[in-house]
Nucleic acid binder design. Sequence first.
DNA 1: GCATAATTCTAACACTGTAAAGATTGAACG
DNA 2: CGTTCAATCTTTACAGTGTTAGAATTATGC
Lengths: 204, 204
Amino acid sequence: MARPAKTPRKTYHHGDLRNALLTAAREVLEERGPSFLGLREISRRVGVSAPSAYHHFPSRDAIALGLAEQGAAELAACLAAAPPNPGGSLLTYGEAYIAFVRANPALYRLMFGEGFPAVSEHSAAIRALRTRSYEIMKASLESRLTAAELPIAGLFLWALVHGLGLLLIDRQIVRDDDLNDVIRRVLTLAGTGLMRGPGRHDGK
Amino acid sequence: MARPAKTPRKTYHHGDLRNALLTAAREVLEERGPSFLGLREISRRVGVSAPSAYHHFPSRDAIALGLAEQGAAELAACLAAAPPNPGGSLLTYGEAYIAFVRANPALYRLMFGEGFPAVSEHSAAIRALRTRSYEIMKASLESRLTAAELPIAGLFLWALVHGLGLLLIDRQIVRDDDLNDVIRRVLTLAGTGLMRGPGRHDGK
DNA sequence: GCATAATTCTAACACTGTAAAGATTGAACG
DNA sequence: CGTTCAATCTTTACAGTGTTAGAATTATGC
């Protein structure tokens, strides 16, 4: 039985079907998980037949790709809006990054190609979007590192928050303490490495 | 033994269909990617009808879960077999971890639930398997950290190699340098953090 | 008002995972 | 040895998917 849309529309033409499909897709993604993100399920929510989506997206994976773009933009916006804290910018940006991952777990995994070949195929476009977060975090380190050290340090920070966020949403981190405390301590530990700079560790 | 996939088999009973399905599934996974990991494609390779798999696995996702278990065991074995290098154990284990990820990209993503609900559903079992790698890496830090610092430091290392490995197989790290050099420098940078210990006076 | 283009629809195709029930076999027991 | 039994593999079938083709409907420009 097809569950009708919330409000059956009056006009034959929907008017803004593309965005309606995207928001419905996002609802499905967060509520029921990525395996339920089907074209028929999405269009059923909008109150529209499945093939009608093909006038706005070339395939189902393209909808997922649209969601991924949306997520990448939001993540970059979250980081850009993080309160500038010159003393502990690493902690600030790291916490903001991980907060986004925890708030949008399914979307974040979608951004990195989970289950949707198109996301990793057209990666040329989406890689650039994902990189924006890296750029922002890297820029936050400019004040205390040399230009030569910056790329590796930024990559270090990105890999850390990427892995930590994914381990968190996979419930792979189980501790009695508050998880926020764990995050803060891991980021602080990383900070002690960045403070010294990425030079070789001499056997001093 | 695994009967050759292409040659039609002599006996009506296969003999070792369960393992044959697993190895065929692994081939499909690495050759064509996770989206091609279908029950019919797997059984076609083995030379068997699709429903015959249901005598050895309760569902298609169960096959994927079997692959994930296999991968987790192999990763732990890789780490356990890493050459013990007391001076730079962090670099040794980190490189071994990332080498496994790069050698089995699709399998590694499968281990962390990509596209297969069952992997994240029965996570109680698979979480323990994934944790074994963390335990091994954590143990490698015992010599230079206190017991209190160990969990956070191990988590820090795990998150770092997890994120770094995933960024690598997502081709998200593009640099002119040799990638192995990038990995080594990131891990060295992490090492300078661990040398100091998490937040307090110098360890050692 | 009318032609035309842009939407949405229904019908249908090839494919998937899975269930049910029949065919084939190896093994246990007389 | 033959018979029986349980295990295994098979065909058949069903509901569901993404997608295509073409017909129906509506909005738009003259």
